[in-house]
């Protein structure tokens, strides 16, 4: 073999120092094509075989919806309901917590003092005179439920809410209470709240003096 020319040798030397010439370089190569691959036909036949195998397997994953209802997880957030207490009164104390918490601004409450002379209401101070939720505007985030101190508002697992007009989708107090009456029978109460027991704030009112101070505040705070 003859000596390579000087500038050729220099060029080779320079190339040898390039990163691609280092020992650490791993070479990625395209997989080799075999005759069968290049013929296409075996691949087509195996594709057809896959299609036929699925077609004759008879295992459809389709659920026939209106007849077979899906299983809704218990913590699903669907249509709201307004809970009733043991006496059948609306449990809501019109504290506006949910309305304040709602990021979609779809709750509207007008509070009224409870009729003190009525024996039915004598242990209550306030109650919601009107309580409307725009179900179209709601994003079903569950903030209202979390904010409510007495677990009066809850999201049920009703998922198939429809309506023909926008007005129909604005739920008032009666409608929300009727959702409670309907869903309470099914035994599928929402799991996030205290399932009809009084919430922590209600308990706090009777034991306020003995309760430890809220975290981060002094006794006097």
């Amino acid at each position: 073999m003859s000596e390579p020319q000087t500038n050729e040798a220099q060029k080779n030397e320079a190339l040898k120092n390039k990163p691609s010439a280092k020992k650490s370089v791993k070479w990625g190569e395209a997989p080799k094509l075999t005759i069968l691959d290049a013929l296409y036909l075996p691949a087509i036949v195996s594709g057809l075989a896959t299609a036929v195998r699925h077609a004759v397997s008879g295992k459809a994953t389709t659920r026939q919806y209106p007849e077979v209802e899906p299983e809704i997880p218990p913590n699903y957030r669907g249509v709201h309901r307004l809970n009733r207490d043991e006496a059948g009164r609306v449990k809501c104390v019109a504290c506006y917590m949910c309305q304040t918490a709602c990021p979609a601004n779809c709750i509207e409450i007008i509070a009224a003092p409870a009729p003190k002379d009525d024996p039915h209401w004598k242990d209550r101070d306030k109650f919601p005179a009107t309580f409307t939720i725009d179900e179209l505007r709601c994003i079903y985030c569950g903030m209202c439920e979390e904010a409510c101190p007495v677990d009066a508002i809850e999201l049920t697992s009703i998922y198939d809410l429809t309506g023909m007009t926008r007005e129909e989708m604005i739920f008032d107090k009666e409608k929300l209470l009727s959702v409670f009456d309907e869903t309470v029978k099914t035994g599928r109460d929402p799991v996030r709240t205290n399932r009809g027991k009084l919430g922590p704030a209600a308990e706090l009112s009777s034991t306020a003096k003995d309760a430890p101070p809220p975290p981060g505040r002094g006794k006097s705070g």
Binding site: K18, A21, V25, K26, W27, G28
Partner: peptide
């Protein structure tokens, strides 16, 4: 390393 052509490196 004599020719950079076609090189694919995963350094």
């Amino acid at each position: 390393g004599l020719s950079p052509q076609g090189a694919v490196s995963y350094e």
